[in-house]
Design a protein around this nucleic acid. Sequence first.
DNA 1: CTAATTAGTCAACAAGCGTTGACAAAAGGA
DNA 2: TCCTTTTGTCAACGCTTGTTGACTAATTAG
Lengths: 191, 191
Amino acid sequence: MPRESKKPTKSDRTRAAIVTAAQKLFAEQGYERTTVRDIAALAEIDPALVIRYFGSKDELFARVAVFDLKLPDLGKVDRSKIGENLVRHFLSMWEGENAIGGMPIMLRSATSNEVAANKLREVFSGQVMPALARAGGRENVAERAGLVSSQLLGLAFCRYVLKLPPVVNLSREVIIRAVGKTIQRYATGED
Amino acid sequence: MPRESKKPTKSDRTRAAIVTAAQKLFAEQGYERTTVRDIAALAEIDPALVIRYFGSKDELFARVAVFDLKLPDLGKVDRSKIGENLVRHFLSMWEGENAIGGMPIMLRSATSNEVAANKLREVFSGQVMPALARAGGRENVAERAGLVSSQLLGLAFCRYVLKLPPVVNLSREVIIRAVGKTIQRYATGED
DNA sequence: CTAATTAGTCAACAAGCGTTGACAAAAGGA
DNA sequence: TCCTTTTGTCAACGCTTGTTGACTAATTAG
């Protein structure tokens, strides 16, 4: 009974359907508003299967609410283009083909779900801080990373979660120029 | 039966206790997580009274989730100090004595409660946009207001809701200097 | 083909939710 | 004092939630 990656097809299609439905609903309505029955209905399966395959609603959420920012090595980026680079990367994480599904899920749920909030803080200390440590001096890393996060999370919050019309309507170019300049200053610590 | 402001004391102390408890709990856990029974327990009254006095949980939330940013007239502020001024004002709205209780309530609930999200958007178009219209040219008001909001809401989200340690630890002075410079650029549309 | 394993169905559970209405206590004016 | 209005209490309602276990159907192995 090799549990290896052989036998690609069985009804893990069910598992996949559950995951897909859960991602969509958690991202749209957050953890509390999304019910196991909603997920099952969207996946066109029985609610009991959600529990059978994932143990509980919490475990399913934990499974789905993981993501990797895939931040580039800022030590290898042209020093004067770090801000632009980060903003471009950030937008591509949220929009287009390779968008990371876990991000809207976390942002929507972190306000009322302590598990999600902790995961977001971990992403910060495990991914954002280390990346920023390679972008400027060793000093004030936390301060610089905090400022960067406040701007980028705020942008995501307004644009993708709250959907504030003027922020939704901002073009990629405007964001890259205006916000990029801010991130450049925060990230490098230059005044 | 004059319904005027006479007779200051009866048991509107109950009403006040309910409002106070509701503000605290909505601000800490958001709309969905907060139950009528929780509010009643904190106010040390019967759950039925919450409904009696406020009609429903939704009406109580609507009552409590209102706020006025009290933005200053930016036309009367030294043009080069608009950013600093706005950030100072923003911090005072969140911290200290006269902090507005409705703000954390809204921010926590807007991610999963459409009523709260709409109210936030109304605050934006009814208070932030008009104020910014007096800070720069008539053009790009929406763009500038959107950028300002993305930074200030992001700051509030990280510092007061998510409580990201590096952002919580930022001193007022650092925030006023670093974020103030950003807001200055966004608000005036310079560069 | 038969037997065993896997996948899916169904009804129900205990707990929690917002909300209601019938009733008792307290307060205040006549 | 009595009577009316205000305040508060209590139990219960109908509904939804996450979760469970017994059962059937489908798939696979020998």
